[in-house]
Amino acid sequence: MKQIAPKKIVIWTLLFIGAVIMMTPIIFMFSASFKFNDEIYELALISSEPTLSNYIYLFGNTEFLMWFTNSIFVALLTTLCVLFFDSLVGYTLCKFRFRGRKIIFIAILSTLMIPTEMLVIPWYILARDLGLLDSYIGLIFPGIMTGFGVFLMKQFFESVPDDYLDAARIDGISEFEIFTKIAIPMVTPALSALAIFTFLGNWTAFLWPLIVTSSAELYTIPVGLSSFSGEFQSEWEMIMTGAAVASLPTLLIFLILQRYIIRGVILGGLKE
């Protein structure tokens, strides 16, 4: 049998301890969400009488379900918009030759330099003047196209051979169909990377939803959780349940699509 070097065992153990530390907050959050109020301050991970009552209360007696749906809706719709528009723009800037192409690309790229924090105040005023405060459109409009996505997609369309597209043109397929039916399927890894980043970014977004929404019916999960936590501060098990529900979808998606997500993160990250 091959001897395992003791150094390797030490490294593995240290990495394992690190991994446990990384997971501790998440484990405690879930553990607390299954506890009754009088047990929550105990260090034991598994409650002596685990309960779902916090979850039942959360979905039955608070607006959490609504916030949850809002978050899903906003994150999904934004992601779809980003996927469509960013790939369209990236494709056009990559595959079409026309005057002004470079300037437009640089202009869009330069928006990466503008921090959201600088834009939220003008957005707020814009939304107010257009009557979009406290509406779904108000929530969504700032994010439906991104400089990052355009850049990412343009990079990836470089790898799509022009001959392919030209062949389709000769067959008389319309430009829009060439884009949707031929170009897009060739960059699906990039699309999934963009989708992961966009969905995650919107699912967790806090500042803009906090500013633009006012009625609880329009809150997204982070905003709802923040106001909910302030109100339920004496009931940490409820806050932990809310936090657990907020984290659950992304965690579940990760567990199912782990391989693709990590690949996507690397793709998106390295091209940035």
Binding site: R128, G131, L133, D134, S214, S215, A216, S226, S227
Partner: peptide, 21 residues
């Protein structure tokens, strides 16, 4: 009868009255 969470109430009144709503 409309209500808003306390945390945002003050800001929302100011903004919406200003907008004529």
């Amino acid at each position: 009868h409309t209500d808003f969470p306390y945390a945002q109430y003050r800001t929302k009144v100011a903004a919406s009255v200003a907008a004529g709503e």
